[in-house]
Amino acid sequence: MQTLEQPRLDIGEQAFVDQVIADRKGRPGALLGILEAVQEHHPNKYLPMATLDYIASKTGVPLSRVFSVATFYSLFNLKPQGDNTICICRGTACHTRGSRNLLQSARLSLGLGLDDISEEDKILLTTSDGKFTVRTVACFGQCALAPVVEVNQKIRGHVNERTLQREIETIERESE
């Protein structure tokens, strides 16, 4: 999987991470806040391995612990995210209301293919142009609205393949 053979952080990024760490010095559970702030700052909303390595060396938190925290919470991404995120709920209620079809139709219409259509609990795919990321989540807690899809941080309820398609088209039109 990922290794450390990546370019080191540039000076600007280093300065930002240093500041984030300094702001949270001495606070219990600071690591979570640091990871969140650094991910939010990244243009592709993710935590590159070199960044995790740098955070570990600056905070004194062991590498293995930083990696453990960054992989435990689904909030954190270890891969670059697209400009737009379509997050499809795969919880029980949404599943029975056809969220698998929504996932497949989103993958097909964005050219992400249906390979590795395994029953993995977490799917995260980004288009090659970096415009869209399609991912899944276990539950949004909005089961009454099933099936639920989150499009760019906005929750959409009772989604069907047609309305999801329309959302994607709207984003594509606006980004042109």
């Binding site: 062991p62 590498l63 293995s64 612990r65 990696f67 453990s68 992989t71 435990f72």
Partner: peptide, 8 residues
């Protein structure tokens, strides 16, 4: 501190 668990 070499070891830890990752993912869930």
């Amino acid at each position: 501190h070499v070891w830890n668990l990752f993912s869930r």
